[in-house]
Design a protein around this nucleic acid. Sequence first.
DNA 1: AGAATATACGAACGGTCGTGCTATCTTGTC
DNA 2: GACAAGATAGCACGACCGTTCGTATATTCT
Lengths: 201, 201
Amino acid sequence: MAATAERRRRPDGERSRQKILRAAASLATIDGLDGLSIGSLADHIGMSKSGLYAHFRSKEQLQLATIETALAILDTLVVEPAEAAATPLERLRTLYDRFLDYIEERVFPGGCFFASAESELGMREGRVKDRIAELQRGWVARVEGLVQEAQAAGELPADEDPAQVAFELDAYGMMGNVGFVLHDDPEYLRHARSAIHHRLR
Amino acid sequence: MAATAERRRRPDGERSRQKILRAAASLATIDGLDGLSIGSLADHIGMSKSGLYAHFRSKEQLQLATIETALAILDTLVVEPAEAAATPLERLRTLYDRFLDYIEERVFPGGCFFASAESELGMREGRVKDRIAELQRGWVARVEGLVQEAQAAGELPADEDPAQVAFELDAYGMMGNVGFVLHDDPEYLRHARSAIHHRLR
DNA sequence: AGAATATACGAACGGTCGTGCTATCTTGTC
DNA sequence: GACAAGATAGCACGACCGTTCGTATATTCT
């Protein structure tokens, strides 16, 4: 009768897995999600290549797991604090304030993990690109929804296209990220903050 | 008497070189400037790896030459048409109109060559990254200068920070590019055009 | 305590990477 | 037509790539 004795995972293995994935998310913002190599990742955290590899069935699985790890970090640092704000407009402002903080604090050394991945994977094919595209759509949909809520609450002018507003807000964040990383100059983040706050006035 | 017999290049060699560099610029927008490999590039244009390599002293030299080739294409398709316009404001509008055309027409399969390179090389080091950063600064300086000229001509409100306006214009272009490539959806370019034209009103 | 399994390692695989060396064509100049 | 030099190809190198396998150790379950 179905002797499916599912063995439990060991805590040290789970700790290793988290360590691998956090390092992978960081290195991916420098070398790219594809440019990241298993050997250098193993060296970076002091593990053997085969020991690291055993946690995943393929490099693609490692990449997919890395994306989910980065997503959890973004949720904790950016999305969840924004959801705690009182009004839709405050949620929007907090979302982008926390987003720009998360870039400036170099949570990932190469800026926003997802901005990097979107640029890198734009023309690729496969599950990794599909997941990144899906998450980008989800982010835009969230912003667009908040804009609509703010309009319904009378906090933003109701005659503007929410999709257009969401596009512009995201553009400021994206450009702030790229400029800040490329020139190591927070001036770009100041421009982004200024543009966002002016747009949400 | 300096017998510096400068040996001339042969035209067939120059043709090959151009063919290589144009293909390299295209492939770099898919696989990245670093991800591009000499072997696959050689296969792609039907040449041997060593025959291709002989045109350059190293991969870095190939990358640097590829950047200059992409720059010449951008200049021809975007910058020069803009400079032909009558007023500063018209030059600004033409610059971004041609820029978005150049993305939409898929001059490079992965969108704007320089947008890709900026995102990829943000945290790298070396001459390739330095050149990309230099060109990005040059582009922003050009836009900022045009904004100042337009203000001096009374075509744009004089109470705005030119650097801020340039940041926002560039943000629209950048986001339009990334979204268009990632989702293969011209909606992002429409948003970019709308935002830019509204900003230059 | 003993059996079973999760974790980690070292070694090795076929393949591709960037990079040289050498030989063979092809072209322009005298 | 001879000759120098540019253009291209063939071949090989050491390094690294993702991946697999066998094995030793540490933990959990019976």
